[in-house]
Every structure is written in structure tokens, then in C-alpha cells.
Amino acid sequence: MTDLAIDLRGIDKVYGSLFSRRVHALRGIDMRVGRGEIFGLLGPNGAGKSTLVKILMTVIKPTRATGTVLGRGVGHKPTLGRVGYLPEHHRFPDYLTGRQVVEFYGAMGGVDRRDRKKRGAELLDFVGMSKWADTRVRGYSKGMRQRVGIAQTLVNNPDLVIWDEPTDGVDPVGRRDIREMTVELKRRGTTVMLNSHLLSELEMVCDRVAILVQGRVSSQGSVAELTIDRQRYEIEVVSEDSNVDTAVRNALARWLTPGSLTGTLATGESLHVQLDGAHAPALLKVNSAEAGVVQPLIDALRSARLTVRAVKPIRPSLEDLFMEAVTDPNTGRALAPGAKEGI
């Protein structure tokens, strides 16, 4: 058995036909999700996240797809009996109660009557809906529907759950509960794929993420892996009695390029100095996550009688990564939302 829950290669989706406007929604998606991990799928509106998830769940037919879900080819219907899916903007029949919703979708997933009755009660308790289990869905708030939605994804005891915007319309307490449920599922060995706009939520729970931009995977990996090249140290220095500008330039002269505020350390990392006047604090940025790399700099600054006020390791957030991914490097502006038209 492969250790990948999802292994996708070259997923393509073109909407439209010869006689209508054609939109290339997905352009060769390659993505891997390990078993038992929490995987976050992010991207701006129209990037193709929901299309990709719907292809996995056979709601949309791919134009081209190779790869596997739980070891079987994409689109293999019986495998869906081992998957739980919560679509975005889901709509449950409003004449059913929460318990009936869980049991109905359990039956559709092939769960035995006795099991779905037993698990239905357990899951409604798990999502905090026991008290409202026999109330019709039409009387539920958005958050309550979301909780019942989560419960129905788990009724078949799935190996993989895919939640599309699970915290949509949920209050902070509910969001925390859902986060805890996600972690609990991981603890039980279930693979969780989350599709969300709430980057801070994803950052807290996801082992790995993929960022989709205009139908392509822009970057993929753990947050640490994705940010390793962007991690840096920042050193803030001041001087009690002399001109900071001159003192910093003199202290760092051996690394700085003459006449410039940038340079390279002996170990190859780049150095950038930001000076804001003779008496304002100076800021040094070293492109490295290693503490040892900045030690010679600190020594040199102290030797020049400068006061080191702060040394901070800086790690970019998921939001920084996301914003970088959705920014056009040529214009510095955010890319237009939506998929590209044409082939």
C-alpha cells in the first residue's frame, strides 16, 4: 500500500465546448498528500481549488487525470465509500433532522443500519450537536449546519476527509472546535484535506500546504519547507554617543560592497543594511535561518561600540507566502482572480 492518500499527476480541466467560451480551470496539477497528514489547499478565488476537489469526488469530470486517491484511480466510485466530503455551500434537505442527515448520507455511503445509528449518535456528540439532533435542519444556524455537515463526512469512518471551507460562517468558538476535531482526526490516523481562505487557521493545523494560482500549483510543501529560503535574522543597533550611520558602515566594511548598503557574508548569505539617519536605529537583515551566521556581525558591531538592541529570527507567515504567490512579479500587484480563459 502506498503511503500517499492522494497522488495526482497532470490534472487538467477545461470548461466549455467548441461552441462556447472555454476556460482552462486546471493546468496540469501535480499534488501529493501523505496518509495521516493534514493538508491545506489554498489559493485566491477562481484558482481551481473547488474544481480540483470536485474532480476527486467525481462531481466534475476531468479533461485529463492520472493519479490515485487512497491507492485507486481518480474517479473510482467504490473508493468514495472510504472518503468523507463536505462541499462548500452544502445544502441538506431541510425536511430532515440532523440525525436523519447523518444517517441518510451514511446509508448512501454504504454504512450498515446499525453502524450508522450508533456512529450517528456518537458523531453528533463529537460535533456538539446531540441536543439538536432531532430538530429539523431548516431550524439550524449556519454554524450548526456546518457541524452536522462535518458529522456526515465521518459516518463511514473514512480514511480521507475533504472539507471545503469547513469554517465558513462559523463563530470563533466553532472554529476552534473544528480545529480540534481536525487534530483529533489526524491523531486517529485519518488524512484530512482542508480547502480554506482562513490562512491563520490552516497554518495552525496543516502539516503541508499547496497554493493554487490560476489553475497551477504555485508551491507545495510544509510551511517550514516553503519558508526556509525566506527566513532571516534582523539585528537592530543603536549608538549612545556616535553617528550610527558612520559607525555601522565602518563596522561592516569588510562585508559591504563599497558605496552600497548590501553585501555578502563569508558563508555566502546576503546582508542588507537599512539606515534611517545618524541617530535613528539601524536595521541589519541577514538572509539566513542559522544563528551562527550572525555571530561575527554581532561581534563586529559590539567592537565598534554599537549597542545591539534586538536580534530577531524572522519566519514568514503562510499569509506572506500566499501573498507572494498571488502577486505578479513583474507588476508587484495581485494577479487577477479567476482562471485564465482559453487553452
Binding site: 469526488m57 473508493t79 465509500g81 466530503y85 462541499p87 452544502h90 441538506f92 454504504g110
Partner: peptide, 10 residues
């Protein structure tokens, strides 16, 4: 939102 739930079943 309704059809997605049933189509995703086996």
C-alpha cells in the same frame, strides 16, 4: 451544494 453530497458517494 445538494448534488455534490450524493455524487460523492459510491
Amino acid at each position: 451544494g445538494s448534488i455534490d453530497l450524493v455524487l460523492s458517494k459510491p
